[in-house]
């Protein structure tokens, strides 16, 4: 593992936290101001009565918006833009949705089991029309368990960078380069956890989250393929081009 000075780790923490805050889609202050209003029953029903393809399209648009912020986050991570373009794309294709799921805990209300979506807080019922109840409930469970870790913004920023810089993704050309960046990020994450006096268990809990994220993303891909098999034209003509590039 690389030798990194404490000063270098502090610098890395600063850069990655700043990148996270600049690109996190919703600032803490905005989140506090957001009315914690949940969708009313009639609104929930109106989402449920949308045709399956319309609900899929709406979610694809929302996911794509969130992913655009993750791309900006990646670009600001020290060293990411020094990787070859193949590897930048490999990392984003594999990791951008994972970071969206990580970031979801910032807009998730554990008490009401709801997530900020399309202007209000939505429970799993809102997404019934997608026809992926099992995936949706896993995504909600994941958000809830991320929330229970009560990560600070610094910790969340570093964990997001760690996920994005996964050196074990297939098709990387300069695996070693990515490995170095990921190891540094992990050291910075450990450094922050220590500084914040978090209990030892947090890091191993975060490691478990990495495999949970992979499973969520591969299940998303499966659901998309099943949807595409039935509605190929809808995906082709109505889904955001970036979404198709990433998951097609």
């Amino acid at each position: 593992s690389p030798t990194v000075s404490l000063a270098e780790l502090d610098h890395l923490v600063q850069i990655i936290s700043k990148s996270h805050l600049e690109t996190c889609q919703y600032l803490r202050e905005e989140l506090q101001q957001m009315s914690r209003q949940n969708f009313q029953q009639d609104e929930v029903e109106s989402y449920q009565s949308k045709p399956r393809e319309a609900m899929w399209q709406l979610c694809a648009v929302k996911i794509t918006e969130a992913i655009q912020y993750v791309v900006e986050f990646a670009k600001r991570i020290d060293g990411f833009m020094d990787l070859c373009q193949n590897d930048q794309i490999v990392l984003l294709k594999a990791g951008s949705l994972e970071v969206v799921f990580v970031r979801m805990c910032r807009v998730f209300d554990s008490q009401s089991n709801s997530v900020y979506f399309d202007g209000k807080f939505a429970g799993p019922d809102v997404f019934k029309g997608l026809g992926c109840d099992d995936l949706i409930s896993s995504v909600f469970d994941f958000a809830k368990s991320m929330c229970s870790l009560h990560l600070t913004e610094d910790e969340l920023a570093l964990f997001s960078a760690f996920v994005l810089l996964s050196a074990d993704r297939s098709w990387l050309q300069e695996k070693l380069q990515v490995e170095k960046l990921q190891q540094k990020t992990q050291l910075a994450l450990q450094h922050v956890l220590q500084k914040n006096q978090r209990e030892h268990g947090v890091l191993s809990k975060l490691r478990c989250k990495v495999s949970a994220l992979r499973s969520l993303c591969s299940r998303h891909t499966e659901k998309l393929s099943a949807f595409r098999a039935v509605y190929p034209d809808i995906v082709q003509t109505h889904f955001p081009p970036l979404y198709k590039e990433l998951f097609g």
Partner: peptide
């Protein structure tokens, strides 16, 4: 392939 992603990566960070 990956035209948009390429574009997003090339746009300077604002």
């Amino acid at each position: 392939k990956h035209k948009i992603l390429h574009q997003l990566l090339q746009n300077s960070t604002s």
